[in-house]
Amino acid sequence: MKIVIADDHAIVRSGFSMILNFQPDMEVIATAADGIEAYAAVAKNKPDILVMDLSMPPGESGLIATGKIKEDYPDTKILILTMHDDEEYLFHILKSGASGYVLKNAPDEELLLAIRTVHAGGTYIHPKMATSLVREFIKHDKSGSSEDPFELLSKRELEILPLIAKGYGNKEVAEKLFISVKTVEAHKAKIMEKLQLKNRPELVEYALRKKLLDF
């Protein structure tokens, strides 16, 4: 199976590449340092599996990149690497299109098992989180709709939110995303309205709570 690894730490990319390339059924064909590079690597190489870190500051996060990649390249299965094991976060990971997740402190054997499980068409979830995940899905199913305004944000708003929270001005955000300042301002207003936030400090606090930032 052909694999792309995305992580903002070069030593992690190298370490994982060595582990995976040692397996007779795995080959790392490309690496990436953030979500934007991960998207480009998938577009160029069409891998079977993308193993992607969720938090890759200051680049695009894995959560945002997952949605984009799954929409444009649905055949590539995504396995998320994360330090977070809370059920709400896991719910968002899977809803974004990922096929599973592995904690970054998990042993090598678990990473290999997760990759093979996902490649075979399954979903890999750490056993201790399975019950919590089922409970979260049931809660959302009973509600009939999402109770979390976070899920109302568009893909562009999900790109803009962490940039604003990191302190970038409207002009800087516009330059990074190749859009106009007016477009940024419009999206920012919609973000504040949807999330019912009043000012930037509240926005930063919200982004931290949702683990969209990693200072």
Results as ranks from 00 to 15, higher is better:
residue 7 D to E: 12
residue 9 H to K: 02
residue 15 G to M: 05
residue 18 M to K: 14
residue 19 I to F: 03
residue 20 L to M: 10
residue 20 L to E: 02
residue 21 N to K: 03
residue 21 N to I: 01
residue 21 N to V: 02
residue 21 N to Q: 08
residue 22 F to V: 06
residue 23 Q to N: 03
residue 23 Q to V: 01
residue 27 E to W: 00
residue 29 I to V: 14
residue 30 A to Q: 09
residue 31 T to A: 10
residue 35 G to Q: 08
residue 39 Y to E: 12
residue 45 N to P: 01
residue 48 D to H: 10
residue 48 D to E: 14
residue 49 I to T: 06
residue 50 L to W: 10
residue 53 D to N: 12
residue 53 D to V: 03
residue 54 L to R: 09
residue 54 L to A: 10
residue 55 S to M: 11
residue 57 P to M: 04
residue 57 P to R: 12
residue 57 P to A: 03
residue 57 P to K: 06
residue 58 P to K: 13
residue 60 E to P: 00
residue 63 L to F: 05
residue 63 L to E: 05
residue 63 L to N: 03
residue 66 T to S: 09
residue 67 G to E: 15
residue 67 G to R: 13
residue 67 G to Y: 05
residue 70 K to Y: 02
residue 72 D to Q: 15
residue 72 D to R: 15
residue 74 P to A: 08
residue 76 T to V: 02
residue 77 K to P: 00
residue 78 I to A: 01
residue 78 I to C: 01
residue 80 I to Q: 13
residue 80 I to K: 11
residue 81 L to Y: 03
residue 82 T to A: 11
residue 82 T to S: 14
residue 82 T to H: 09
residue 83 M to D: 02
residue 84 H to F: 15
residue 87 E to T: 13
residue 87 E to Q: 07
residue 88 E to S: 13
residue 89 Y to R: 12
residue 89 Y to K: 08
residue 91 F to E: 09
residue 93 I to E: 04
residue 93 I to Y: 08
residue 93 I to G: 00
residue 94 L to W: 12
residue 95 K to V: 03
residue 97 G to N: 07
residue 97 G to L: 10
residue 97 G to S: 08
residue 99 S to T: 04
residue 100 G to R: 10
residue 100 G to M: 11
residue 100 G to H: 11
residue 101 Y to V: 07
residue 101 Y to C: 06
residue 101 Y to K: 08
residue 104 K to N: 05
residue 105 N to V: 05
residue 105 N to W: 00
residue 107 P to T: 03
residue 108 D to K: 10
residue 111 L to N: 10
residue 111 L to T: 05
residue 115 I to N: 06
residue 116 R to V: 04
residue 116 R to Q: 08
residue 117 T to F: 02
residue 117 T to P: 01
residue 118 V to K: 11
residue 127 P to M: 11
residue 127 P to G: 07
residue 128 K to L: 02
residue 131 T to R: 13
residue 134 V to K: 12
residue 141 D to A: 14
residue 145 S to W: 00
residue 148 D to F: 01
residue 154 S to Y: 09
residue 154 S to H: 09
residue 155 K to L: 13
residue 155 K to F: 03
residue 156 R to A: 15
residue 156 R to V: 12
residue 156 R to L: 15
residue 159 E to M: 07
residue 161 L to D: 02
residue 162 P to C: 10
residue 163 L to S: 03
residue 168 Y to M: 13
residue 169 G to H: 04
residue 170 N to E: 06
residue 171 K to A: 06
residue 175 E to D: 13
residue 176 K to M: 04
residue 179 I to V: 15
residue 182 K to A: 14
residue 182 K to N: 15
residue 183 T to K: 08
residue 184 V to W: 04
residue 185 E to V: 11
residue 186 A to M: 07
residue 186 A to K: 15
residue 187 H to D: 15
residue 188 K to P: 05
residue 189 A to L: 13
residue 192 M to Y: 09
residue 197 L to H: 09
residue 197 L to Y: 06
residue 198 K to G: 14
residue 200 R to H: 12
residue 200 R to A: 07
residue 201 P to E: 06
residue 201 P to R: 07
residue 204 V to F: 05
residue 204 V to R: 10
residue 206 Y to L: 14
residue 206 Y to C: 14
residue 207 A to E: 03
residue 211 K to I: 08
residue 211 K to Q: 14
residue 211 K to P: 01
residue 212 L to S: 07
residue 215 F to E: 12
residue 215 F to P: 11
